[in-house]
Structure formats: structure tokens, C-alpha cells
């Protein structure tokens, strides 16, 4: 049963392993999205190991907290965390994107632990809001978490959901923005700026928390604060680094959708794991 631990050192060590799994599975898959997976490693590690109530042995437990990956292309980080928490065997990770695999190129509900398939951007916050309202109708107290990409929130559907979540005062909904500053065509500021981002969410009626999205103790505190906000949805604006943890991938837009070569994989794993 989770949550398991609030020990930051332990969580940091799990995050390293998650990061290494992402590199390995993407190198083996030969295609996929490393940059936006690596930027969300601490967010998902914290959620799955120390925030959410869930049971990998019983993925459909009806009182579970829900997580919805709106930026479906970042599925490698979710797959790695689901494997590490025990939803399925780690060996499945090496089938990513292969014909017949349960680990599809974008998050897919055939994978144990995934609620709803995603991939087409901009829809996830509505879905998460539906889940949050579902708790209200069923008189349950589960919470719903939704990870949004920064380029993704250029979609109008996100703001429809933002307006409705505040209108319906859903305190059990917590969005996390993986603000890694890059999208496929370039930097978010160049393509379609989101700023002033915190003001926008506040104006839409949300409680906002801005943190360093790679600092696990900050993430734990932010999620705890969000639980205390009962009458509004909360968004954690996580300042992150695209490609975080691998020097030659950090801030490099090319690694949004390019996987490491065998040499790059070796170098990346050395950087992440050190000379263990």
C-alpha cells in the first residue's frame, strides 16, 4: 500500500533509478520522448511513493487517489514509476513501443495503473475534473492529480476545464504543471508564451504554488498544502528542466522527441548513476 515514505533521501535514490530506467527503455525502444519524461521524474516519484493512496495489487480499488497523465507522451516516466511501485514487472519496460506491448507509445489504459489513455494534448484536465466530480457524486474522499505539459496548456480545452474546476469548487483536484520551458518547435516563450502563468491560474480561481519541480521536499510540502485547500482546485507550477539529470540533454529541444544513441545512453547512465 502507498504512500510508502516521506524520506527525501530514499525518494531521491528512487528518482535516480527511475531516471535510469527512462533512458534505458527509450534507447531500447528507438523512439519516444526523453526530455519531458526526465523533467517530471521527481514529480511522479513523489506522487506515487509519498503522496497518493493507491494499491498496485488492486489497481481498481475504488477509493484510490487518481493520477492522470495529460501529457501522454511522457509515458516513459509513468511506466517506470508504475513498474517500481509494483503494478507490473520491470522487464515489461523493454517492450516499450513494440508491437503487441502493453506499453504503448502514448499512455494507454491497457497498462495496469493507467486510468485512461492519453496522447492528444489538452484533454486531461477535463478528464481529471470529471474524476474529481465523480468523488463528490459518490461521496468519496479520493483526490485526483493531473500532470500538464507547458506547451500543452496552449490548448483551449485546458482553460475550459480550469474555469469549470473553479466554478465547481473542486478541492480534491490538484494539477501539476511541468514547466520545462520547451515544446517541439522551440522554447515555449518563442512559440507561444504562457506568462504571466501564475496570474492566469489565479485569475481563473485556482490556488497556485510555485516550486522547484526537482526538489522533493518542496514537492512534498506543496502536495500537503494542496490537501488543505478545500474550496478551490490547486495547481503546482513546477519549475523544471527539460532533460533533467543528463547534462547533454538538459535544455536541449532536440531531445523532446529524439532518443539517445547507444553511446549517449552509456554516457547518460554514467551521469545518472555515477560509477556505482
Amino acid at each position: 500500500m502507498f504512500p510508502l515514505t516521506k524520506n527525501v533521501k530514499q525518494l531521491e535514490s528512487i528518482a535516480k533509478e527511475v531516471r535510469a530506467l527512462i533512458i534505458k527503455m527509450l534507447a531500447k525502444a528507438g523512439s519516444g520522448h526523453p526530455g519531458g519524461s526526465l523533467s517530471a521524474v521527481e514529480i511522479l516519484t513523489t506522487l506515487y511513493f509519498s503522496v497518493m493512496r493507491h494499491d498496485p495489487q488492486n489497481p481498481h480499488w475504488e477509493d484510490r487517489d487518481r493520477f492522470h497523465l495529460s501529457k501522454g507522451h511522457a509515458c516513459p516516466v509513468l511506466y517506470a514509476v508504475l513498474a517500481k511501485t509494483g503494478y507490473f514487472d520491470e522487464s515489461e519496460l523493454w517492450t516499450l513501443r513494440k508491437f503487441g506491448s502493453m506499453l504503448q507509445g502514448h499512455a494507454d489504459r491497457r497498462t495496469p495503473g493507467i486510468e485512461i489513455s492519453t496522447g492528444s494534448l489538452g484533454q486531461g484536465l477535463s478528464i481529471a475534473l470529471g474524476m474529481a466530480l465523480g468523488a463528490r457524486v459518490a461521496r468519496k474522499n479520493y483526490r485526483v492529480y493531473c500532470l500538464l505539459g507547458d506547451g500543452e496548456i496552449q490548448e483551449g480545452n485546458v482553460w475550459e476545464a480550469a474555469m469549470a474546476a473553479a466554478h465547481y469548487n473542486v478541492g480534491n483536484l490538484c494539477a501539476i504543471l511541468d514547466y520545462n520551458k520547451f515544446q517541439i518547435d522551440g522554447s515555449v516563450d518563442e512559440i507561444m508564451s504562457l506568462e504571466p502563468i501564475e496570474d492566469k491560474w489565479e485569475a481563473f480561481g485556482w490556488h497556485t504554488i510555485v516550486i522547484d519541480g526537482h526538489d522533493i521536499s518542496d514537492l512534498i510540502s506543496a502536495f500537503e498544502q494542496a490537501k488543505e485547500i478545500k474550496k478551490k482546485p490547486t495547481i503546482i507550477i513546477a519549475q523544471t528542466i527539460k532533460g533533467k539529470g543528463v547534462s547533454f540533454m538538459e535544455h536541449v529541444v532536440d531531445f523532446h522527441g529524439r532518443v539517445p544513441s547507444p553511446e549517449e545512453e552509456k554516457k547518460a547512465l554514467e551521469e545518472i548513476l555515477g560509477n556505482e
Binding site: I116, S126, L129, G130, L133, G134, V137, A138, A161, A164
Partner: peptide, 16 residues
């Protein structure tokens, strides 16, 4: 907001 209508409907349906 029809896109939101369908997304919220989907989320509710996923809860049974």
C-alpha cells in the same frame, strides 16, 4: 464548452 463537456463526461464514466 463542448470539449470540456466530453472530457468531464469521460472522467465521470471512468469512475463507474
Amino acid at each position: 464548452a463542448e470539449q470540456n463537456l466530453m472530457g468531464i463526461s469521460a472522467g465521470l464514466a471512468s469512475c463507474g
